[in-house]
Simulated scan of single mutants.
Amino acid sequence: MSSQSPTSGEAARAAWMRVLALSTLSDLEACAQDYADTAHDVLRSPETGLVMLRGRMGATGAPFNLGEATVTRCAVRLDDGSEGHAYVMGRSASHARLAAICDALLQRDPEGLSAKIIAPLAAKFSAKQVEASTKAAATKVDFFTMVRGDD
């Protein structure tokens, strides 16, 4: 089995698809409002299903089925033939459709649209992660053991 590393274009696309999938619908709509009405054909209308989540004990153990998660997917084709695909957690058909449109548009103009759509979404997501980490850190409890002196 050969292992091929992704090209820079594939890595960039994977990165922006991650940001589109992890963003909230309201954030995505705010950043991509100028592109939401882009003419497109629907290749795969938004459909919701389940995916199996897998885990490993200690990240190195044998894989096991952790549970299922709801995912919505969509595929579109723009007038110039660019195809966009999206998978988002949950049941939001509009999120999946808009993310697929953005994926197709980003393939046409990755540099220009990354600054307009992806950078603001990534910044908002990062800020939300920092906020969640700060809240979690505030509840951290350090446990320690005191040695009693008994032998």
Score class of each variant (00 low, 15 high):
2 S>T: 12
5 S>P: 01
5 S>L: 10
6 P>G: 04
9 G>T: 05
9 G>E: 14
10 E>D: 13
11 A>N: 09
14 A>H: 08
14 A>K: 08
15 A>W: 14
15 A>N: 06
16 W>V: 01
17 M>N: 12
18 R>P: 04
19 V>S: 12
22 L>T: 01
22 L>G: 11
23 S>V: 08
23 S>C: 06
23 S>P: 10
28 L>I: 02
30 A>M: 14
32 A>R: 02
33 Q>L: 15
36 A>M: 13
36 A>Y: 07
38 T>P: 08
39 A>V: 05
40 H>D: 04
42 V>T: 15
45 S>V: 04
46 P>T: 06
46 P>Y: 05
50 L>V: 06
52 M>L: 12
52 M>T: 00
61 G>F: 07
66 L>A: 10
66 L>M: 15
67 G>R: 01
69 A>N: 07
70 T>I: 08
71 V>L: 10
72 T>N: 11
73 R>Y: 00
75 A>I: 04
77 R>Q: 15
77 R>S: 05
78 L>C: 13
78 L>K: 07
79 D>H: 10
80 D>Y: 04
83 E>D: 09
86 A>W: 03
89 M>G: 05
90 G>V: 09
91 R>C: 01
92 S>R: 13
93 A>K: 14
95 H>R: 04
96 A>L: 02
96 A>I: 07
99 A>P: 06
101 I>A: 00
107 Q>A: 13
108 R>G: 01
109 D>K: 07
109 D>P: 11
112 G>P: 05
112 G>H: 07
113 L>S: 14
119 A>S: 12
120 P>D: 09
120 P>W: 00
121 L>F: 00
122 A>S: 09
122 A>N: 11
122 A>Y: 01
123 A>M: 09
125 F>N: 13
127 A>D: 14
128 K>R: 15
129 Q>P: 12
131 E>I: 06
132 A>Y: 03
132 A>R: 08
132 A>L: 02
133 S>E: 15
134 T>W: 06
134 T>D: 12
138 A>T: 02
139 T>G: 07
140 K>H: 09
140 K>P: 08
142 D>F: 14
144 F>P: 00
145 T>Q: 08
151 D>E: 08
151 D>R: 02
151 D>N: 11
151 D>L: 11
151 D>I: 07
